[in-house]
Design a protein around this nucleic acid. Structure first.
Length: 859
RNA sequence: GCCCAGAUGGCGGAAUUGGCAGACGCGACGGAUUCAAAAUCCGUUACCUUCGGGUGUGAGGGUUCGACCCCCUCUCUGGGUACCA
């Protein structure tokens, strides 16, 4: 036993208990233990070279406190931590210094682990996972194989954002729209569009289940809405127009089939495949030059110029299927190739964009929905802007008079019978660009073979329903997977981590690794040619950082399993996380991608629940003292280590939680921590005197004064409720109130002190353990259970009733708690301070809210 | 532009969800203790006031006996999104 300090010496106490928890495995999760389970998940961090900043411990303190609380209440708690360690900064560092990313990762992980331990976070480290560990990414690759075999992965030449400075392709979400043009999120470098061969996942096929699944989830409403908008379901119809003089049709998607009679022209996107074939000779030059211009525009420029519509006429026309009217076809970049069919029917009277375009190019505008005189019109009764509301149809032949909803159905039915239209649903969600031209990511377990060889390869290695092929250096190649026994496919050693200037992955330069031979019946591979084996080359792209983070919560349940991603029995025992805590910045992408993968795993029977995260909580952001986002460049970064040295981890934990509601964005204020430091010193002094010995007024057989006893029990009630709701700020404030009472009590029952320490322990575990031990306990406070409050102790004999006249506070009085309405009102009327306000007035109404208020309405 | 969240003392924030606005803490002020300081303890601290009281939760209106809380309009701040047919 180390020397017992007299004062609250956190610098010696905290490391002592941190080692204790680690050695005793106090918070290890035990598979199949006969107790209710609780799985708390933190979003795992990217172990950067910079180490932890003050934002990390915020969510982690909340989850650590909740974990300790749940443990005290008898739950078998699973609370793991891991490392989302693939990623660009480590690779950039490798390019600069030549250090292997695995080496850097190892160092950063060690540093992060150390820092997390210093804060007293007791993760079950035996379950830690690292996405860059081959034993882990073996299963990331395994999941990809399942996606591939189900036909949910394909290859496409896609114009993607390429950043010359970073030498890599970026996903849309990694590109920021800035006033200087599109820039990379990391490093703020200029980026440009380049067509590059990419792997893409058909997340759009899961659009419907991804929307439906949201309904049952206990998530912040705003996050659900964000995902819903991102998926962007819209109902409408597909309508086919015949192109005049060509054996071609244009199919459009519209949410307003009811406005079809008002379609006065059509627009196709500049990238639309029919553009060149339907454009007339006379218009060729103009259209071609327009397309060239449109291509050079970035997405931002297209959006920025939203006010001014541009376009060119193709000279071709199409037939409106409802009235046989011949309408012109235009090319314009306000129609996007990536949404719907890349073509629209333009109804300028009822769509603002079409209206602006029609004005610009002097195209016909026909109103077909009656606006009931609500729309703004000029002197001649012509619309000044599109009327986008609904209403009865006009100028629509036999549809006239029907309301929009009825007409939508009627028109689609009519077109359907002629095979010129049908009801359809469209999504904003696009397929997921799933490859990066980088070194530091999971290699794809994919080989490319020639078309002839592909025919001879065993079906188990193919995507049977949707074979994947592409052109590489002019040859058509087909994709097959490695057999599952060949996993993990590890990253090869390379001489340089720099991508080639044409944007290909650094792996494309690893010649020895790249070319190999495969046995077509077994999938066995070798770098030597063998009888009957086939020459193949490896996929050189790697997976994006999202891949590893899409399923890590499953692996914590069974982190060392060599035979399966997760043991079904363990999966059933622990289930999915009961609570997922993490930043709102992942509200869409990470959470959507993970749900997609989880639903796939559910469909193929790997997991037993359809949704991975039933309850989600977003912690807020800690801002710098200046109220701005913490950043190195602003110089307002607070370093947790400095705070721990000066005040201790317990103080930092408490203060982070005391700052405000967990979900709020709140500024750090170093001075404020003094209050927490005082609270902790006072707690110490409650139990121990100046000599470090138990305070003499703490006795087993003594009684608290009634007021303090009431406060203690009210505190147990309130704090328990607050822990459940993650309302740590108010829990702490109640602890302060409770402590202030206990500190003043002359006689202090041991039980009261112990109750208080148990309430405090989840948030300030080191001091609680130390004082618990000084009270003579041999076992950890973690096994001491949770205090119960006695409802009978909360009942008061007298209560304060507020007297109001006309809703204004005039007086209050202590009255018996069980007072009836009549007596309470009588007391109010008789009160000295009330009398002057009712004198000479008649009382119109008397309101009594039991135990709270009497309100006299006087006139 | 659209969607979401928010606005309460000098500061961070409370308010049982329609019932005493400002809990708890910081800061400030006054006092005790001290040779002095640190630490600790005790007060005061929304604003105005003729000391009776009056006014106050971003602004304006409404519902109600009663509104920080519900409804309408507006202003500002933060976040997301961007011609999605």
């Amino acid at each position: 036993m180390s020397e017992q300090t007299k004062e609250y010496d956190f610098l010696s106490i905290e490391p002592k208990w941190q080692s204790f928890w680690a050695e005793e495995n106090t918070y290890a999760a035990i598979d199949f233990e006969d107790a209710p389970t609780y799985y708390i998940l933190d979003m795992f961090p990217y172990p950067s070279g910079a180490g932890l900043h003050i934002g990390h411990p915020e969510g982690y303190t909340a989850s650590d406190a909740l974990k300790r609380y749940k443990k005290a209440r008898g739950f078998n708690v699973l609370h793991p931590m891991g490392w989302d360690a693939f990623g660009l900064p480590t690779e950039q560092y490798a390019i600069k210094t030549g250090t292997h990313p695995a080496e850097t990762t190892k160092q950063n992980v060690a540093r992060f682990t150390e820092q997390l331990k210093q804060l007293g976070f007791t993760y079950d480290w035996s379950r830690a996972i690292n996405t860059t560990d081959p034993d882990y990414y073996k299963w990331t690759q395994w999941i990809f194989i399942q996606l591939f075999k189900k036909g949910l992965a394909y290859v496409d030449e896609k114009p993607v954002w390429f950043c010359p400075e970073l030498g890599t392709v970026l996903a849309n979400e990694e590109v920021l729209n800035t006033p200087e043009g599109p820039r990379s999120e990391r490093g703020n470098f200029p980026v440009e569009r380049r067509p590059i061969r990419q792997w893409v996942l058909r997340i759009t096929e899961y659009a419907e289940p991804l929307i439906k699944g949201l309904k049952k989830l206990d998530w912040p409403d705003s996050t659900k809405r964000l995902q819903e908008n991102w998926i962007g379901r819209s109902e409408g119809g597909e309508i086919t127009f015949q192109v005049v003089g060509h054996d071609a049709q244009l199919t459009v998607f519209t949410t307003r089939p009811d406005t079809l009679y008002g379609a006065t022209y059509m627009v196709i996107a500049p990238e639309h495949p029919l553009v060149s074939s339907i454009t007339t000779a006379a218009n060729k030059t103009a259209v071609e030059s327009y397309i060239t211009k449109a291509k050079s525009k970035s997405d931002l420029e297209r959006a920025e110029l939203s006010k001014e519509k541009t376009g060119a006429s193709t000279g071709a026309t199409a037939i409106n299927p409802v009235n046989g009217k011949e309408i012109p076809i235009w090319v314009a970049d306000y129609v996007l190739m990536t949404y719907g069919t890349g073509a629209i029917m333009a109804v300028p009277a009822h769509d603002q964009r079409d209206f602006e375009f029609a004005e610009e190019f002097d195209l016909e505008i026909i109103q077909v929905i009656d606006d009931a005189n609500t729309a703004e019109k000029d002197g001649a009764g012509i619309l000044c802007a599109a009327y986008t509301g609904s209403g009865p149809l006009i100028h629509s032949a036999e549809q006239n008079g029907k309301d929009s909803e009825t007409a939508k159905k009627a028109i689609l039915d009519e077109l359907g019978s002629r095979h010129q239209g049908k009801a359809a649903v469209n999504y904003k969600l696009r397929d997921w660009l799933f490859s990066r031209q980088r070194y530091w990511g999971e290699p794809f377990p994919i080989l490319w073979v020639s078309e002839e060889d592909y025919a001879n390869i065993d079906d188990s290695l193919k995507s049977l329903e949707r074979p994947v092929s592409c052109q590489i250096e002019g040859k058509t190649l087909f994709a097959i997977t490695l057999p599952e026994e060949a996993l993990p496919l590890e990253l090869p050693q390379v001489e340089s981590y720099t991508p080639s200037p044409d944007g290909q992955s650094p792996l494309s330069k690893a010649e020895d690794w790249l070319h190999l031979y495969i046995d077509p019946s077994t999938g066995k591979t070798s770098d030597q040619a063998q009888e009957g084996w086939i020459a193949a080359q490896r996929e050189t792209n790697t997976m994006p950082q999202w891949a590893g983070s899409c399923w890590y919560y499953l692996r914590y349940v069974d982190p060392k399993n060599q035979q399966a991603l997760i043991d079904p029995e363990k999966e059933k025992y622990w289930g999915t996380p009961d609570l997922y805590i993490g930043g709102a910045e992942h509200a869409v992408l990470h959470l959507l991608y993970a749900r997609f993968w989880h639903q796939l795993l559910y469909d193929i029977g790997v997991v037993s629940e359809a949704e991975p995260f039933n309850k989600l909580f977003h912690q807020g952001i800690i801002l710098g003292e200046d109220g701005e986002k913490m950043s190195k460049s602003r110089g307002n970064v607070v370093n947790p280590e400095t705070i721990i040295e000066a005040y201790g981890a317990d103080a930092l934990r408490l203060y982070l939680m005391f700052l405000g509601p967990l979900e709020a964005m709140k500024p750090w204020n170093t001075k404020g921590i003094e209050g927490i430091a005082r609270f902790l010193r006072k707690t110490w002094r409650l139990v121990l005197n100046e000599n470090g010995l138990l305070q003499e007024n703490i006795q087993p057989e003594t009684h608290l004064d009634p007021e303090s006893e009431r406060v203690l029990h009210a505190s147990i009630q309130k704090i328990t409720k607050d822990y459940e709701a993650l309302a740590f700020n108010t829990a702490i404030s109640q602890m302060m109130i409770c402590l202030n009472h206990l500190a003043k009590a002359e006689n202090l029952p041991r039980q009261a002190v112990e109750d208080f320490l148990r309430l405090l322990a989840p948030l300030a575990p080191h001091i609680a353990e130390e004082l618990w031990q000084r009270l003579g306990h041999e076992k950890s406070i973690a096994s001491a259970g949770w205090p119960e409050f006695d409802p009978s102790k909360l009942i008061e004999d007298t209560i304060k009733i507020v007297f109001q006249v006309n809703g204004k506070y005039r007086a209050d009085q202590l009255l018996p708690a069980d007072i009836g309405k009549e007596d309470a009102i009588a007391a109010a009327k008789a009160h000295q301070k009330v009398l002057p306000h009712v004198e000479g007035k008649s009382i119109k109404r008397e309101i009594y809210v039991p135990g709270k208020i009497v309100n006299l309405v006087a006139q």
